[in-house]
Design a protein around this nucleic acid. Structure first.
Lengths: 307, 307
DNA sequence: TGAAATGTGAAACTTCTTTTCATATAATAG
DNA sequence: CTATTATATGAAAAGAAGTTTCACATTTCA
């Protein structure tokens, strides 16, 4: 059979495609980002990979299958869903990120009743740091690029966020006020809804919602959708209706969900995503107009947060 | 033949032995060390692996065979001579050392004009994480204890913050709304000032200000002081008048100040300080009233950030 | 130069991975 | 509540990848 030669060629193309799509996104981030869209059995696989990436990276597909109690077929499908072209590529990538993580302390300590105050504070900070790290790993350049383009070209950029996410939305509004862009935000739901109704396909909406299931937020998104507005979503659940409606979705992630509401940690992740978008917007939009490190600096200087 | 099972076992032994014998020797080092003992064809393989470890690590044995012009059999023998139990283990190890050799960006990078979007995002997250770390290190248990006592015993806890710090104040208000405490916050300066005027020595004020030099904020603090209110300050400058006026001061720190305003990074540090205070308040106040892990959990459940 | 040792690739063989297919399960419509 | 459709899953077939055997070529050394 002469399929062997052909096959080599196929592989090369594969790699090429992959290179373009998922730059700088860690395997673990990818898994976390897709976790809630996975089926029950696939979650078992994902869990093991998240818990012991180094070990899993050395397993054959059979070993992983029997370790998780699922079939090899499921695993093969799983890695493809994760956007790897085959199992080997997956373990390879896993080994990579495992190696990078090793030196760090990734453990998520539970807060306990008897903890001293200093311990409580330390754990709180550690949670936050880990959330940021997880969120960072799940970002992918493609999404960032698409988001920045939409933001820069928008006639108006509006922020939407209710409840806990109102804080993030307000922060985003505050940040982007320092750019030349037209930005808007109002904490009141009714006004947010009216604002949504006024927007058009030339505008861009940044919608923040932890759960992605809040009724009011969804109402706003439907209105935006009806008007053809470009929607950028920041949420914690990639499977939510909200995430589905978005042109671009960014995930704020937390390793640990059990003890307390993750919403609190996701808040700072959301804000840091906004911060990234802000920095990218500033650096990109100004570099198109003038040959301008100085100009950029000026803009950033104005950025001075005061109070 | 029933050797398959045995083989798996064989692998385990191999690893064991290998681990003992050749600890911490990089794949590339191994190849170099054996290079001149290799046959002519094997050298071709070795050469390619040395020159492009990263590329070779992603090849299948067939691809490597055709790339070097030798048979797969030879390569299989080659990796065994290198003391790996199979080709897969070899490529894995090669990938590892290739990754290690790649220059790691550990430091505190400046954002630069030419940075890719992914780089900008990574740096932004790194900054944030470093800020949190620095802030955490600067906390001290004494201050935490005094702050928590004041908060728990206060008749009313009011949050004050203007400009960028309004976001943090709002966040704090949001969080503490989930406790049984009496909390208040309003974004408007005049109302904050009036609120300050209404407070007494039985109350506690949490004042957030990045610079600690904002006029309006200082006005509020003077008013609070006049009324004998216990003042907890969260700021970035311990020397400011604001910090001096406080009963307890927490510092939000940033490692890096140069390129852009640190205000943005201090924001998430401030919020995480607030988060710590919140957790401590919840854990402490409830543990005094009931023997209550359950109660705590309930409270925290209510804490669900929604939207 | 010839015998032994070593190196090598083709092909057989084993192991690993992917795909197919039949079945089970959940979701949806009537 | 049932019929229908979509989705998920594992067993097993098919397909690749990797290893070993074996026959032949080359080198080494007497």
């Amino acid at each position: 059979m002469k399929c062997c030669k052909m096959f080599t060629k196929g592989n090369l193309f594969k790699n090429y495609r992959k290179g373009a799509a998922t730059i700088a996104r860690s395997t673990i981030g990818k898994i976390r980002g897709t976790y809630d869209q996975l089926s029950r059995t696939e979650k078992k696989v994902a869990q093991l990979a998240l818990d012991n990436p180094a070990v899993v990276s050395e397993m054959t597909i059979k070993e992983l299958a029997s370790a998780t109690g699922v079939s090899t077929a499921t695993i093969s499908r799983f890695v493809k869903r994760m956007d790897y072209s085959n199992y080997r590529e997956f373990t390879m990538a896993l080994a990579h990120t495992a190696a990078e993580m090793t030196p760090q302390q990734n453990s998520f300590p539970e807060l306990a009743e008897g903890d001293s105050l200093a311990t409580i504070a330390n754990k709180t900070f550690r949670f936050s740091i880990n959330s940021l790290r997880a969120t960072n790993e799940a970002l992918n350049e493609d999404d960032l690029a698409r988001a920045v383009i939409k933001i820069i070209n928008a006639k108006t950029v509006a922020f939407f966020g209710l409840g806990g996410s109102a804080v993030a939305a307000l922060d985003g509004y505050h940040k982007f006020l320092r750019t030349p862009l037209n930005v808007t935000y109002h904490p009141d739901y009714d006004i947010q809804l009216m604002q949504a109704a006024r927007m058009t396909a030339q505008d861009c909406a940044i919608v923040i919602s932890h759960s992605g299931r809040n009724h009011e937020t969804l109402e706003i998104v439907r209105e935006l959708k009806r008007n053809g507005v470009a929607i950028i979503v920041i949420t914690s659940y990639s499977g939510s209706e909200l995430a589905q409606a978005a042109a671009v979705t960014f995930l704020s992630l937390t390793d640990e969900v059990k003890y307390r509401s993750e919403g609190m940690y996701s808040l700072i992740s959301q804000m840091t995503i906004l911060d990234s978008l802000f920095m990218m917007t500033v650096l990109r939009s100004s570099s198109r107009t003038k040959p301008v490190l100085t100009r950029v600096r000026d803009v950033i200087e104005q950025t001075r947060y005061d109070s």
